[in-house]
Simulated assay, not measured.
Amino acid sequence: MGMKSFLLTISLLVCLISVVTGQEKVDFVVAADGTGDFKTVQQAINAVPDFRKNITVIYIKNGVYKEKLVLAGSKARVKLIGESVEKTILTYDDYNAKKNVFGEDMGTSGSSSFYVYGDEFGAENITFQNSSGPVGQAVAVWVAGDKVQFKNCRFLGFQDTLYTYGYKSRQYYKDCYIEGTVDFIFGSSTAVFENCEIFCKKGGYITAASTHDSTSYGYVFKNCRITGDGGSGSFYLGRPWRPYAKTVFIRCEMGNIIHPDGWNNWGKESNETTAYYAEYRNTGPGFRPGKRVKWSHQLTDLQAADYELTKIFDGWLPEK
Protein backbone atom coordinates (compact mmCIF):
# COMPACT_ATOMS: atom_id res chain seq x y z
CA MET A 1 0.00 0.00 0.00
CA GLY A 2 1.36 3.43 -0.95
CA MET A 3 1.69 6.25 1.58
CA LYS A 4 -1.19 8.18 0.00
CA SER A 5 -3.52 5.16 0.22
CA PHE A 6 -2.41 4.45 3.78
CA LEU A 7 -3.16 8.02 4.91
CA LEU A 8 -6.55 7.87 3.17
CA THR A 9 -7.38 4.64 5.01
CA ILE A 10 -6.42 6.17 8.35
CA SER A 11 -8.50 9.25 7.60
CA LEU A 12 -11.55 7.16 6.76
CA LEU A 13 -11.09 5.11 9.94
CA VAL A 14 -10.99 8.25 12.07
CA CYS A 15 -14.11 9.56 10.35
CA LEU A 16 -15.92 6.26 10.93
CA ILE A 17 -15.00 6.21 14.60
CA SER A 18 -16.13 9.83 14.92
CA VAL A 19 -19.53 8.92 13.50
CA VAL A 20 -19.89 5.90 15.79
CA THR A 21 -18.87 7.76 18.93
CA GLY A 22 -20.61 11.03 18.17
CA GLN A 23 -17.34 12.88 18.79
CA GLU A 24 -15.54 15.31 16.51
CA LYS A 25 -12.22 13.69 17.23
CA VAL A 26 -10.91 10.47 18.75
CA ASP A 27 -7.49 10.92 20.28
CA PHE A 28 -6.46 7.29 20.94
CA VAL A 29 -7.74 3.91 19.77
CA VAL A 30 -7.32 0.79 21.91
CA ALA A 31 -7.48 -2.60 20.20
CA ALA A 32 -6.34 -5.89 21.70
CA ASP A 33 -5.45 -7.18 18.23
CA GLY A 34 -2.91 -4.42 17.64
CA THR A 35 -4.91 -2.45 15.07
CA GLY A 36 -5.14 0.66 17.28
CA ASP A 37 -2.70 3.01 18.95
CA PHE A 38 -2.47 0.80 22.05
CA LYS A 39 -3.24 -2.80 22.96
CA THR A 40 -4.28 -2.04 26.53
CA VAL A 41 -6.56 0.54 28.11
CA GLN A 42 -4.02 1.48 30.79
CA GLN A 43 -1.45 2.32 28.10
CA ALA A 44 -3.91 4.75 26.54
CA ILE A 45 -4.76 6.31 29.91
CA ASN A 46 -1.06 6.73 30.70
CA ALA A 47 -0.57 8.53 27.38
CA VAL A 48 -3.00 11.29 28.32
CA PRO A 49 -0.96 14.38 29.30
CA ASP A 50 -1.24 15.27 32.98
CA PHE A 51 -3.52 18.25 33.67
CA ARG A 52 -4.67 18.52 30.07
CA LYS A 53 -7.49 21.07 29.84
CA ASN A 54 -9.21 19.67 26.76
CA ILE A 55 -11.22 16.44 26.61
CA THR A 56 -9.24 13.33 25.66
CA VAL A 57 -11.37 10.71 23.89
CA ILE A 58 -10.21 7.08 23.99
CA TYR A 59 -12.08 4.69 21.72
CA ILE A 60 -11.93 1.03 22.79
CA LYS A 61 -12.63 -1.68 20.24
CA ASN A 62 -14.53 -4.82 21.17
CA GLY A 63 -12.63 -7.26 23.32
CA VAL A 64 -12.11 -8.49 26.85
CA TYR A 65 -9.43 -6.38 28.52
CA LYS A 66 -8.29 -8.00 31.75
CA GLU A 67 -6.56 -5.08 33.45
CA LYS A 68 -6.55 -3.48 36.88
CA LEU A 69 -7.03 0.12 35.79
CA VAL A 70 -6.19 3.43 37.44
CA LEU A 71 -7.19 6.85 36.12
CA ALA A 72 -4.99 9.21 38.15
CA GLY A 73 -6.21 12.50 39.54
CA SER A 74 -3.90 14.31 37.11
CA LYS A 75 -5.84 12.82 34.17
CA ALA A 76 -8.91 15.06 34.00
CA ARG A 77 -11.58 15.21 31.27
CA VAL A 78 -10.90 11.71 29.95
CA LYS A 79 -13.69 9.95 28.09
CA LEU A 80 -13.75 6.23 27.29
CA ILE A 81 -16.07 5.08 24.51
CA GLY A 82 -16.56 1.41 23.78
CA GLU A 83 -17.42 -0.06 20.41
CA SER A 84 -20.26 -2.12 21.94
CA VAL A 85 -21.49 -2.23 25.54
CA GLU A 86 -21.82 -6.03 25.55
CA LYS A 87 -18.53 -6.72 23.77
CA THR A 88 -16.21 -4.04 25.15
CA ILE A 89 -15.42 -5.48 28.56
CA LEU A 90 -12.98 -4.13 31.16
CA THR A 91 -12.53 -6.72 33.88
CA TYR A 92 -10.39 -7.95 36.76
CA ASP A 93 -10.80 -10.50 39.55
CA ASP A 94 -9.49 -9.11 42.85
CA TYR A 95 -11.61 -9.35 46.01
CA ASN A 96 -11.56 -8.34 49.67
CA ALA A 97 -9.93 -11.45 51.17
CA LYS A 98 -7.45 -11.97 48.33
CA LYS A 99 -3.86 -11.53 49.46
CA ASN A 100 -1.58 -8.79 48.20
CA VAL A 101 2.18 -9.16 47.71
CA PHE A 102 2.68 -8.80 51.48
CA GLY A 103 0.22 -11.55 52.32
CA GLU A 104 -2.37 -9.06 53.58
CA ASP A 105 -6.05 -8.90 52.66
CA MET A 106 -6.60 -6.48 49.81
CA GLY A 107 -9.70 -5.10 51.49
CA THR A 108 -12.79 -3.77 49.77
CA SER A 109 -11.14 -0.65 48.33
CA GLY A 110 -8.15 -2.67 47.17
CA SER A 111 -10.36 -5.08 45.24
CA SER A 112 -11.58 -2.69 42.54
CA SER A 113 -11.08 -3.46 38.88
CA PHE A 114 -11.06 0.24 37.91
CA TYR A 115 -10.19 3.32 39.97
CA VAL A 116 -11.42 6.74 38.80
CA TYR A 117 -9.64 9.63 40.53
CA GLY A 118 -9.74 12.14 37.66
CA ASP A 119 -12.46 14.78 37.52
CA GLU A 120 -14.92 15.08 34.61
CA PHE A 121 -14.42 11.47 33.58
CA GLY A 122 -16.92 9.96 31.17
CA ALA A 123 -17.66 6.48 29.83
CA GLU A 124 -20.09 5.15 27.24
CA ASN A 125 -20.89 1.70 25.82
CA ILE A 126 -18.59 -0.24 28.15
CA THR A 127 -19.00 -3.18 30.53
CA PHE A 128 -17.11 -2.83 33.82
CA GLN A 129 -16.76 -6.12 35.65
CA ASN A 130 -15.33 -7.75 38.72
CA SER A 131 -15.17 -11.39 37.67
CA SER A 132 -14.10 -12.91 41.00
CA GLY A 133 -17.61 -14.26 41.65
CA PRO A 134 -19.56 -14.57 44.94
CA VAL A 135 -16.52 -14.36 47.23
CA GLY A 136 -17.49 -11.39 49.38
CA GLN A 137 -16.71 -7.76 48.67
CA ALA A 138 -15.39 -7.34 45.13
CA VAL A 139 -15.63 -3.91 43.50
CA ALA A 140 -15.97 -3.40 39.74
CA VAL A 141 -15.60 0.40 39.73
CA TRP A 142 -14.36 2.77 42.47
CA VAL A 143 -15.13 6.43 41.75
CA ALA A 144 -13.60 9.39 43.60
CA GLY A 145 -13.54 12.02 40.84
CA ASP A 146 -16.06 14.87 40.58
CA LYS A 147 -18.50 15.45 37.68
CA VAL A 148 -18.30 11.85 36.50
CA GLN A 149 -20.73 10.44 33.92
CA PHE A 150 -21.51 6.91 32.74
CA LYS A 151 -23.92 6.34 29.85
CA ASN A 152 -25.13 3.01 28.51
CA CYS A 153 -22.64 1.10 30.64
CA ARG A 154 -22.90 -2.19 32.53
CA PHE A 155 -21.53 -2.84 36.02
CA LEU A 156 -21.23 -6.56 36.77
CA GLY A 157 -20.46 -8.19 40.09
CA PHE A 158 -21.90 -9.53 43.32
CA GLN A 159 -21.28 -7.83 46.69
CA ASP A 160 -20.12 -4.19 46.53
CA THR A 161 -20.20 -3.86 42.74
CA LEU A 162 -20.14 -0.06 42.47
CA TYR A 163 -18.28 2.03 45.05
CA THR A 164 -19.20 5.72 44.80
CA TYR A 165 -16.30 6.55 47.03
CA GLY A 166 -15.71 10.27 46.75
CA TYR A 167 -17.00 12.59 49.44
CA LYS A 168 -18.36 15.66 47.58
CA SER A 169 -18.06 13.70 44.34
CA ARG A 170 -20.98 14.16 41.90
CA GLN A 171 -21.77 11.20 39.67
CA TYR A 172 -24.39 10.64 36.96
CA TYR A 173 -25.43 7.25 35.58
CA LYS A 174 -27.81 7.17 32.63
CA ASP A 175 -29.24 4.16 30.78
CA CYS A 176 -26.94 1.85 32.72
CA TYR A 177 -27.28 -1.72 34.00
CA ILE A 178 -26.03 -2.41 37.53
CA GLU A 179 -26.19 -5.83 39.19
CA GLY A 180 -25.22 -7.33 42.50
CA THR A 181 -26.18 -8.90 45.79
CA VAL A 182 -25.32 -7.20 49.09
CA ASP A 183 -24.82 -3.40 49.23
CA PHE A 184 -23.95 -3.41 45.57
CA ILE A 185 -24.25 0.37 45.20
CA PHE A 186 -22.47 1.99 48.14
CA GLY A 187 -20.45 4.99 49.26
CA SER A 188 -20.57 8.65 50.23
CA SER A 189 -20.96 10.41 46.87
CA THR A 190 -23.95 12.26 45.51
CA ALA A 191 -25.09 10.07 42.61
CA VAL A 192 -28.10 10.10 40.29
CA PHE A 193 -29.21 6.97 38.44
CA GLU A 194 -31.58 7.77 35.59
CA ASN A 195 -33.36 5.25 33.34
CA CYS A 196 -31.16 2.48 34.69
CA GLU A 197 -31.88 -1.19 35.30
CA ILE A 198 -30.94 -2.29 38.82
CA PHE A 199 -30.70 -6.09 38.80
CA CYS A 200 -30.88 -7.78 42.21
CA LYS A 201 -29.14 -11.17 42.34
CA LYS A 202 -30.24 -13.69 44.98
CA GLY A 203 -30.92 -11.54 48.08
CA GLY A 204 -29.57 -8.51 49.89
CA TYR A 205 -29.60 -4.71 49.84
CA ILE A 206 -29.46 -2.48 46.78
CA THR A 207 -27.78 0.49 48.45
CA ALA A 208 -25.55 1.19 51.42
CA ALA A 209 -25.06 4.94 51.37
CA SER A 210 -22.57 6.60 53.70
CA THR A 211 -23.69 10.16 52.99
CA HIS A 212 -21.94 12.81 55.06
CA ASP A 213 -24.15 14.72 57.50
CA SER A 214 -23.37 18.00 55.71
CA THR A 215 -24.36 16.66 52.27
CA SER A 216 -27.89 17.46 51.08
CA TYR A 217 -28.27 14.59 48.60
CA GLY A 218 -26.99 11.02 48.54
CA TYR A 219 -28.43 8.54 46.02
CA VAL A 220 -31.32 9.47 43.74
CA PHE A 221 -32.89 6.88 41.43
CA LYS A 222 -35.15 8.35 38.75
CA ASN A 223 -37.28 6.32 36.32
CA CYS A 224 -35.30 3.15 37.00
CA ARG A 225 -36.39 -0.49 36.76
CA ILE A 226 -35.71 -2.66 39.79
CA THR A 227 -35.57 -6.26 38.59
CA GLY A 228 -33.85 -9.45 39.67
CA ASP A 229 -33.83 -13.20 40.10
CA GLY A 230 -34.26 -13.31 43.88
CA GLY A 231 -37.37 -14.49 45.64
CA SER A 232 -40.29 -12.30 46.67
CA GLY A 233 -39.23 -9.78 49.30
CA SER A 234 -35.57 -10.81 49.11
CA PHE A 235 -34.14 -7.30 48.72
CA TYR A 236 -34.26 -4.04 50.63
CA LEU A 237 -33.93 -0.71 48.85
CA GLY A 238 -31.18 0.27 51.22
CA ARG A 239 -29.55 0.28 54.63
CA PRO A 240 -27.34 2.99 56.14
CA TRP A 241 -23.63 2.27 56.06
CA ARG A 242 -23.24 5.55 57.94
CA PRO A 243 -25.91 7.20 60.13
CA TYR A 244 -26.82 10.04 57.72
CA ALA A 245 -27.37 7.90 54.62
CA LYS A 246 -29.72 9.47 52.07
CA THR A 247 -31.45 7.50 49.28
CA VAL A 248 -34.55 8.37 47.25
CA PHE A 249 -36.40 6.40 44.54
CA ILE A 250 -38.53 8.52 42.18
CA ARG A 251 -40.99 7.09 39.62
CA CYS A 252 -39.21 3.73 39.59
CA GLU A 253 -40.76 0.39 38.64
CA MET A 254 -40.19 -2.15 41.40
CA GLY A 255 -40.44 -5.92 41.06
CA ASN A 256 -41.79 -8.15 43.83
CA ILE A 257 -38.23 -8.85 44.98
CA ILE A 258 -38.46 -5.70 47.12
CA HIS A 259 -39.27 -6.40 50.77
CA PRO A 260 -42.49 -4.70 51.92
CA ASP A 261 -40.55 -2.81 54.62
CA GLY A 262 -38.43 -1.24 51.89
CA TRP A 263 -35.63 -0.17 54.20
CA ASN A 264 -33.42 -1.66 56.91
CA ASN A 265 -31.72 0.12 59.83
CA TRP A 266 -28.60 -2.15 59.81
CA GLY A 267 -29.38 -3.31 63.34
CA LYS A 268 -29.20 0.19 64.87
CA GLU A 269 -32.39 1.95 65.91
CA SER A 270 -30.47 5.23 66.16
CA ASN A 271 -30.06 5.17 62.35
CA GLU A 272 -33.81 5.61 62.04
CA THR A 273 -33.55 9.18 63.30
CA THR A 274 -30.63 10.21 61.10
CA ALA A 275 -30.95 8.36 57.78
CA TYR A 276 -33.27 9.82 55.13
CA TYR A 277 -35.03 7.27 52.93
CA ALA A 278 -37.87 8.31 50.64
CA GLU A 279 -39.93 7.39 47.59
CA TYR A 280 -42.15 9.23 45.13
CA ARG A 281 -44.77 7.77 42.81
CA ASN A 282 -43.07 4.43 42.27
CA THR A 283 -44.96 1.57 40.63
CA GLY A 284 -44.98 -2.22 40.43
CA PRO A 285 -45.60 -5.05 42.91
CA GLY A 286 -42.56 -4.07 44.96
CA PHE A 287 -43.97 -0.63 45.74
CA ARG A 288 -46.10 -1.02 48.85
CA PRO A 289 -46.09 2.38 50.56
CA GLY A 290 -48.53 1.29 53.24
CA LYS A 291 -46.12 -1.45 54.36
CA ARG A 292 -42.93 0.63 54.47
CA VAL A 293 -41.09 1.20 57.74
CA LYS A 294 -42.57 4.15 59.62
CA TRP A 295 -39.33 6.11 59.62
CA SER A 296 -39.18 6.31 55.80
CA HIS A 297 -40.95 8.96 53.73
CA GLN A 298 -43.31 9.30 50.78
CA LEU A 299 -42.55 12.62 49.10
CA THR A 300 -45.17 15.24 48.29
CA ASP A 301 -45.19 16.91 44.86
CA LEU A 302 -43.54 19.96 46.40
CA GLN A 303 -40.79 17.90 48.01
CA ALA A 304 -40.19 15.93 44.81
CA ALA A 305 -39.57 19.19 42.95
CA ASP A 306 -36.33 19.53 44.91
CA TYR A 307 -34.88 16.55 43.03
CA GLU A 308 -33.94 18.24 39.77
CA LEU A 309 -30.43 17.56 38.50
CA THR A 310 -29.04 21.06 38.85
CA LYS A 311 -30.21 21.25 42.46
CA ILE A 312 -28.97 17.77 43.36
CA PHE A 313 -25.59 18.52 41.75
CA ASP A 314 -25.30 22.09 43.09
CA GLY A 315 -25.34 23.79 39.70
CA TRP A 316 -23.61 21.13 37.58
CA LEU A 317 -25.73 19.83 34.70
CA PRO A 318 -24.51 16.55 33.15
CA GLU A 319 -24.77 15.95 29.42
CA LYS A 320 -28.18 14.48 28.58
Score class of each variant (00 low, 15 high):
K53G: 08
F313D: 03
K61D: 06
H297K: 12
S18R: 11
F114E: 01
F102V: 04
M3E: 15
Y59T: 05
A144S: 14
Y177A: 00
A72D: 15
G230F: 10
F28M: 10
R225D: 05
T127W: 05
C196W: 05
Q303P: 02
F114D: 00
L7G: 06
I198A: 00
D160V: 10
P243D: 03
I226D: 02
D213F: 15
Y95Q: 00
K174C: 11
Y205Q: 12
L317Q: 11
Y59P: 00
L8H: 09
Y307P: 08
N264M: 03
N264C: 05
L156S: 08
E24Q: 03
I198Y: 09
D306V: 04
C15P: 06
G133D: 05
G286C: 06
N125G: 04
I178R: 02
L237K: 01
E24S: 01
K4V: 13
Y92I: 08
G133W: 00
T211Q: 03
D301R: 00
W263K: 05
R154D: 06
N271A: 03
G267P: 01
I45A: 02
W295E: 08
T164N: 13
T247Q: 10
A245K: 04
F38Y: 14
R154Q: 12
I10G: 11
M254Q: 07
R242W: 12
V48C: 04
T274S: 13
T274N: 06
Y219N: 10
E104S: 09
V48E: 06
V48F: 02
V78R: 01
V139L: 08
M1I: 09
E279Q: 07
G122I: 01
D37W: 02
C15K: 09
N271I: 01
C252D: 06
F186D: 06
Y165A: 12
S270K: 13
V30I: 06
L13W: 08
Y173M: 07
Q171S: 02
P134Q: 07
S5V: 11
G34L: 12
S270C: 00
L80P: 01
P289D: 05
V101R: 12
Q129S: 15
K174T: 15
L317K: 07
V64P: 06
V48W: 04
R170G: 05
E269H: 07
E279I: 01
Y177K: 12
G204P: 08
K311F: 02
L309T: 13
S11H: 13
Y65Q: 06
G166S: 11
E197S: 10
L302A: 14
S234T: 01
R281H: 03
Y173H: 11
K246Y: 00
I89Y: 04
L69G: 04
